[in-house]
């Protein structure tokens, strides 16, 4: 059992149009794509929305990492496919899979291209209290660390004969305790250590803070935001006028 797939959500510095954008513009991207994904439950419009994300992934030079994050979701996809096919229809299940892919891809674009430090700065410019912004970016920064720790815990338990695959749902849930308890304890201990380390460096001693780096919403960010708003408007109109759309928009699988 490997947790390597979590690297698919880890920020790496790259030179691309998407990386250079303001984190707030990318947050708008993630939110708008989530909203438009929720507007529809037909295959064709969701597929078009999904396709419209692919050029952004290519521009951001993120194809490899994005494919990893998509592959990592295979278990969840299977779950959605089985449940929706059983209770609604196969066609609806496929549409829901596209919806999940859109949401995960949009947020994966955000996490892959936003430096945790810039994230804190952007929250501060959005008038969030510094303590809140800092904790948020710190939590964001600790995701890969916790993934490494979780992998070490799995390895340590496997070294003493622990086996993940046990029959029955209750047994499988019980089986998570040897992994979850050490992970929670280690995370709480780390949180206390980080808090003490911050306080020993006078965190929060001054209410007014100045920043060495600042971020600005440039013309590039405005153009991108306008593009996103146009996409949102287009899909809202599409939703409102859905009955007048060509028939293939309503196409569904025969099952």
């Amino acid at each position: 059992m490997s947790l390597d797939f979590l690297n698919a959500f880890k920020f790496t510095k790259k030179k691309s149009f998407l990386h250079q954008l303001d984190p707030r513009a990318k947050l708008v991207l993630a939110l708008i794509y989530t909203i438009i994904a929720l507007l529809f439950n037909q295959i064709i419009p969701l597929f078009i929305i999904f396709l419209s994300l692919i050029p952004l992934i290519i521009i951001g030079k993120l194809l490899k990492q994005w494919l990893k994050s998509i592959r990592a979701m295979s278990f969840l996809i299977l779950f959605i496919l089985i449940l929706n096919t059983l209770f609604i229809s196969f066609s609806f299940a496929v549409a829901m899979i596209f919806r999940i892919y859109i949401m995960v891809s949009a947020f994966s674009l955000f996490f892959l291209t936003v430096d945790p430090n810039d994230l804190a700065l952007s929250l501060i410019t959005m008038k969030f209290p510094y303590e809140f912004a800092f904790s948020f970016s710190l939590a964001f920064r600790f995701v890969p660390t916790i993934a490494i720790e979780a992998q070490n815990i799995i390895d340590a338990q496997q070294s003493r004969g622990y086996e993940m695959q046990e029959k029955g749902l209750i047994n499988q849930i019980k089986n998570l305790f040897p992994l979850l308890i050490p992970l929670i304890i280690c995370s709480i201990r780390r949180a206390f250590n980080v808090a003490e380390a911050l306080e020993s460096r006078a965190f929060g001693s001054k209410k007014e803070r100045t920043y060495y780096y600042t971020i600005k919403y440039t013309a590039k960010d405005w153009i991108f935001t306008i593009y996103l708003l146009l996409v949102l408007t287009f899909f809202i109109i599409l939703k409102v006028q859905f009955a007048y759309m060509p028939e293939f928009f309503l196409w569904s699988l025969p099952v």
């Binding site: 003493r160 622990y162 305790f177 304890i185």
Partner: peptide, 21 residues
């Protein structure tokens, strides 16, 4: 498998809190 090998090899990791639960 790891489970079969763990009957022959015991690996004791640096950090004990990774396995106590």
């Amino acid at each position: 498998s790891i489970a079969q090998l763990s009957r022959n090899i015991g690996l004791i990791f640096q950090n004990p809190s990774h396995q106590l639960f």
